[in-house]
């Protein structure tokens, strides 16, 4: 690593601490949210430094991108007066409690974590990688060794959409007032790029950092950008529309494959070795598509109307 690397890590760590602190204690919610988004972007750098490029991709697209968009759109909907009633943090209160507690935690947890031998599972994963159907170990863990986790994770995304939609209708207009003709242009120009990058990430996933989650996140972020640029969302809350199936696609496909392999005398989620690669690619396609739609649906913040046209302000 060397001295330059260490200096870089030091600066990065200090910046992370500063932005995290600002995200919670900065004056004004807008500053807090922007600090948090910067925190997310810097975290992506930290993941790269820790040799986790897969997470860096996901963090940049989801942690900073989608979460940031979600936070800003929630902020736009907040009534300022309602927010102000309980505005700033209770500064300086309970310092007698928090300073010693913080130091104690820092020493205790830091010490405990320092003592960890961290045996890790790198070797067993490497040993079984040949039978997993893919070459990228992270994809092998996500979609083969621990595929049940991934199924539940996509289920949670779908559940999040259901929960959010059950709370009420989507606010409209969902995009800020247009201040520039350049933004719709940007949306039009960039959307093909978003599709291309997603496809590229999906294809890369089998042998290098990438895969369904970053790909879906990039695609979903593209959709959010289109919405911000004033595009009409085509995702409708229509009970009979095909969109609900498209949203559920990833979860249904994973459940389908998990049960389908059982017909061949295998266990739940036990892919036949010769088919594993193709099955994983199939699942990645379904999951990536549905993750993109689900993240977009989360951004809508509520149940979309059955027909957008009727809601459109003249």
């Amino acid at each position: 690593m060397g001295a330059p690397g260490l200096a870089f890590d030091g600066i990065l760590g200090a910046a992370l601490l500063w932005t995290a602190w600002q995200a919670i204690h900065a004056a004004g919610l807008f500053r807090a949210v922007v600090s948090f988004m910067v925190f997310g972007l810097l975290m992506a750098l930290a993941w790269v430094r820790l040799e986790a490029p897969d997470i860096a991709l996901a963090e940049a697209a989801i942690g900073a991108g989608i979460t940031g968009a979600l936070l800003l759109s929630a902020l736009g909907r907040l009534d300022w007066e309602a927010g102000r009633a309980t505005d700033e943090c209770l500064r300086g209160r309970d310092r007698a409690f928090w300073v010693p507690t913080g130091l104690l935690l820092l020493a205790g947890l830091g010490g405990a974590a320092w003592l960890l031998p961290a045996p890790g599972l790198g070797e067993p994963v490497a040993a079984e990688l040949g039978r997993s159907g893919v070459e990228n170990p992270v994809t092998a863990v996500l979609l083969n060794f621990r595929a049940w986790d991934t199924l539940l994770e996509i289920a949670i995304l779908l559940l999040g959409v259901v929960a959010l939609w059950s709370l009420g209708p989507t606010p409209w207009p969902s995009s800020p007032e247009l201040v520039s003709p350049a933004l719709p242009m940007l949306g039009r120009v960039l959307f093909p790029a978003f599709v291309l990058v997603s496809a590229y990430l999906l294809w890369r996933g089998s042998h290098a950092p990438g895969g369904a989650f970053p790909a879906g996140a990039v695609m979903g972020a593209g959709g959010v950008l289109m919405l911000m640029a004033g595009a009409r969302p085509w995702l409708s809350g229509d009970v009979h529309g095909p969109w609900r199936w498209a949203l559920a696609l990833g979860m249904v496909a994973m459940l389908g494959v998990a049960f389908a392999v059982m017909t061949g005398g295998h266990g739940f989620f036990e892919y036949p070795v010769e088919l594993a690669g193709r099955l994983i690619l199939l699942l990645e396609l379904a999951a990536g598509l549905s993750i993109a739609l689900l993240l977009f649906a989360l951004y809508l913040g509520g149940e979309p109307p059955a027909d957008w046209e009727t809601r459109r302000p003249a």
């Binding site: 040799e51 045996p119 890790g120 992270v138």
Partner: peptide, 15 residues
């Protein structure tokens, strides 16, 4: 920190 870079926590964090 593990001797061989361990992909399992990476997958866990992605999830």
């Amino acid at each position: 920190a593990a001797e061989v870079l361990d992909p399992v926590p990476h997958a866990m964090v992605l999830t």
